[in-house]
């Protein structure tokens, strides 16, 4: 990101980063060739982010679908380790995240540090759920007959997440980690005005053990990317919470589009305000993107 630098004899000009999309484990520019200007909370230029298109969104779904069976097929223990590793890498990038969060959200360094710490801790919390959720949400069912009968949660498949508009890292982590826990793959539309932490998170994911395609990050106009993802027939579920506060988009419109193939929809909480992400997390965000499968088998000799 751009620090304020003044050309002066002997001063070093910083090397800036080009922020791109993250799709299928790679960092492509938008196929549309478009970018948009990202400013800090005071309106100063930070970077040009990729202005993702509908086609980018479709590509991201293809990548997420391709990665889904493998991610869901990993053992829960393995997914837990892979996700925990992400937290380790997040910790290593603290300074960069703090700077981006402070600039984008207009927070003091101290508050930005608190948000980054909470985001790392949040990731650790979810990483620990992978091999516990089936025990908490599953059941052995005492049917009235000679049958073995068991219910367990499974991932629903490809999940689209419209990330919160305000909380650009803590909010982001709080919405993308939960679907990953059980083996869903994710296409996330980042905060429109504050996309930089999402792209930096992509860089963390790219250097972690998370397979390519498990998380795909789109930047751009939420109102442009949300509707085609909500109506996409190869998407199983959508978290529409981030439509709150997005320009030109109502979460109800996304939910209505999602009905076309009976997607699971996670709505924003009653009151239509972005949640306070510092509140204690709850496994309901994990369970919102699961399906309960019940298996029967006769008992006998």
């Amino acid at each position: 990101m751009a620090a304020q630098s003044i050309a002066a004899p002997g001063a070093r000009l910083e090397v800036r980063k080009t922020y791109k999309l993250f799709v299928g484990g790679k960092f492509p520019r938008s196929e549309s060739g478009r970018t948009y200007e990202v400013a800090d909370a005071k309106g100063r230029f930070l970077a040009n982010a990729a202005l993702g298109s509908r086609k980018d969104a479709r590509e991201a779904v293809v990548a997420a679908r391709a990665a889904q069976a493998g991610w869901a097929g990993a053992t829960a223990y393995n997914r837990g380790q892979v996700l925990y590793r992400v937290a380790e890498l997040l910790e290593g990038r603290r300074e960069q995240f703090v700077a981006e969060v402070a600039a984008g959200e207009g927070l003091s360094t101290r508050k930005a540090e608190a948000a980054v710490s909470a985001a790392v801790d949040r990731w650790v919390w979810y990483a620990g759920w992978t091999d516990k959720v089936a025990q908490v949400a599953g059941s052995a069912n005492p049917v009235a007959g000679p049958y073995f009968n068991i219910s367990a949660p499974e991932p629903t498949g490809v999940v689209v997440v419209i990330a919160p508009q305000t909380s650009s890292l803590l909010g982001l982590v709080s919405v993308i980690a939960p679907p990953l826990v059980t083996g869903n793959t994710v296409v996330v539309v980042s905060s429109e005005a504050r996309p930089l932490p999402a792209i930096t998170l992509s860089e963390v994911l790219a250097t972690s053990d998370v397979p390519g395609g498990v998380v795909n990050v789109l930047t751009g106009r939420t109102a442009e990317l949300g509707p085609p993802l909500a109506s996409h027939l190869d998407v199983n579920a959508i978290d529409v919470g981030g439509a709150l506060g997005a320009d030109g988009l109502a979460w109800g419109d996304l939910e209505a589009a999602a009905a076309e193939n009976v997607k699971r929809v996670l709505r924003p909480p009653v009151g239509d305000r972005e949640p306070d992400w510092t509140e204690a997390p709850h496994p309901r965000r994990i369970l919102a993107f699961t399906e309960t499968k019940t298996v029967w088998h006769p008992k006998g000799v």
Partner: peptide, 23 residues
Amino acid sequence: AGVVWSNTFNRFDPTSPFGGYKE
């Protein structure tokens, strides 16, 4: 699928969750 019957079919019980995936 939400319910998988192995070596049986169309069994229902109040204690056994029932419902679908996808559409």
